[in-house]
């Protein structure tokens, strides 16, 4: 009986969780006049006009492409640099290790607003403004520490005997790391990639500051369009729904890694 009550509560929570998203989906499938005119729980005059507009207007769809490019770059870079570092933190003690670890964390603590101007200046100095790599590198500021943190948890869950046996068997460090160790924490890498993707995808302030046209993220296109055309609720809702799609695809692909990854982590 208790189990059933639990399931009911959980289901109720998940329904409530999806309600605001459903509402936006509802809006995105209706005409503006219809949205403002009548209040309906389901779209009656079903239309895809809002979506068609987004997919045919380069100003809109290039935003999605840009976001996907820099987010993928960021995820790749974060994993690449974080994997060896997390290994170092999980296996060795070295001078200043704990302080280094905490310092990495502090990079999530700086209020971004005032750092925007120096960021812009810094990336200008290196001629990186309006490139995808600029956004990808700037997002490393908060994603790399997180990746190190999560991966370190997973790596500490792998017994040290595995390392020692491999070294005795004559594996070099790179070979051991790539062919033995990383496959062991595959699930952890999947979970980490998910978090990197997520935090880079949702960030807007830095992405908007470092880009003008060529690498402009979708979320920035949205804010600008809102102010330019007044309130086109249907279009806004459709654009919003489309920002959820890439993320939803990513979780769909990593869902098993997430479940398993979460199960393996020592954390």
């Amino acid at each position: 009986m208790r189990i059933r009550k639990r399931t009911v509560a959980l289901t109720l929570y998940l329904v409530l969780l999806l309600l605001p998203v459903y509402w936006m989906l509802n809006m995105s499938l209706r005409f503006n006049a219809d949205i403002l005119g009548t209040f309906r729980l389901f779209p009656s005059e079903f239309t895809l006009a809002n979506y068609v507009k987004i997919f045919t207007d380069p100003a809109w769809y290039s935003g999605y492409v840009n976001s996907i490019i820099y987010v993928s770059m960021n995820t790749a870079i974060s994993l690449l640099v974080a994997l060896p570092a997390a290994y170092a933190f999980s296996r060795y003690r070295f001078i200043g290790d704990k302080h280094m670890f905490f310092w990495l964390l502090t990079n999530r603590m700086a209020p971004p607003a005032v750092f925007l101007l120096p960021f812009f200046q810094l990336y200008s100095t290196f001629g990186l403004i309006d490139t995808h790599i600029a956004v990808a590198i700037s997002h490393c500021l908060f994603n790399v520490p997180l990746a190190v943190w999560i991966l370190e948890g997973f790596m500490s869950g792998v017994p040290r005997e595995i390392d020692e046996t491999a070294y005795i068997d004559g594996y070099s460090f790179p070979r051991f790391f790539l062919t033995v160790f990383i496959p062991l924490i595959r699930a952890g890498v999947g979970a980490t990639a998910f978090f990197c993707f997520m935090f880079s995808w949702v960030e807007l302030l830095l992405a908007r500051t470092l880009t003008t046209t060529e690498a402009k993220p979708i979320a920035a296109t949205m804010t600008r369009t809102v102010s330019a055309t007044g309130l086109d609720w249907g279009l806004l809702a459709a654009a919003g729904i489309l920002t959820i799609v890439p993320g939803a695809l990513v979780i769909w692909f990593v869902r098993n890694y997430m479940a398993k990854g979460f199960a393996l982590g020592r954390v």
Partner: peptide, 20 residues
């Protein structure tokens, strides 16, 4: 459950404001 729970996390922050 995992997939559904992750949905709000994957929405850009200003879009969260818009949704609400």
């Amino acid at each position: 459950c995992l997939v559904l729970l992750a949905i709000p996390l994957l929405i850009p922050w200003n879009v969260i404001g818009t949704i609400w």
